[in-house]
Design a protein around this nucleic acid. Structure first.
Lengths: 123, 123
DNA sequence: TATCGTTATATCTTCAAGGATATAACGATA
DNA sequence: TATCGTTATATCCTTGAAGATATAACGATA
């Protein structure tokens, strides 16, 4: 038996199970959806500033995220270069790419879980 | 093969997969961990005010939550009574109790999912 | 009818997060 | 050496969320 939550809600409002996932270390949160997307875009654009701009995030916040991330990893996962050919830029280490790939898979499994629970709601 | 995220992190910081779940209707969020706990405590204490106090939540916020919840359900799930024997109080409808029970189960399945993913991280 | 503690509501204040802005430092290349 | 756009950093401002506070409305019971 399952509860018909949908019947409890107002007319034609269907309910969905949704959520958020992140990795957590001793100091708390450290790798949620925001940082992941940022890393992905840094990989694409080669620049923290452009990555931030693309996702409508302030450079300040982006820089803080990158900094926090680098502070919690054994070695920095984002390698910044100030000055140089195009003024500078940032590249990702292999570890960062690994983390991105892992997170992609994790997200998929989570999405499946959410779908499953949402389906269950309708019975 | 699985990625050893733990190796990427600083010494002896073990990583955990954590997250948050909620029900979502057309208007967005509407039933997350906070409201659930509040409802549970209202059921126990028979009072919004006491429930809020117990979980260190301001009455203002608690009342807003209850209000939002009642606004989104076909019929109110929290029945308030002003005045009366002990000055008033609030009781839950059967629907509210159903929602609580459902959420308990949902939380358990989610906890299992998180555990599973955390275990997977260590391989 | 007087009392009581709760619901209901408004107002003011605080506080922190984030946005906006400005600027220094940097170094490969032309 | 001059240029360029990025990283790095500080300062100010805005805004929204939440706390604090006060008070009216309420109605069963004594």
């Amino acid at each position: 038996m399952s509860i018909s939550i949908n019947n409890i809600l107002k007319n034609n409002h269907t309910v969905k199970v949704n959520g958020s996932l992140w990795l957590e270390a001793a100091e708390g949160h450290f790798f949620g959806p925001g940082p992941v997307e940022l890393l992905e875009r840094i990989a694409e654009t080669g620049s923290i500033r452009m990555a931030a701009k693309e996702m409508n995030m302030s450079y300040k916040k982006a820089w803080a995220l990158v900094n926090a991330l680098n502070a919690q990893t054994a070695s920095p996962v984002v390698i910044p270069q100030t000055g140089g050919k195009k003024g500078g830029g940032s590249t990702l280490t292999a570890e960062a790419l690994e983390m991105i790939a892992y997170h992609r898979i994790l997200r998929q499994r989570f999405a499946d879980f959410l779908d499953q629970e949402t389906q269950r709601l309708k019975k």
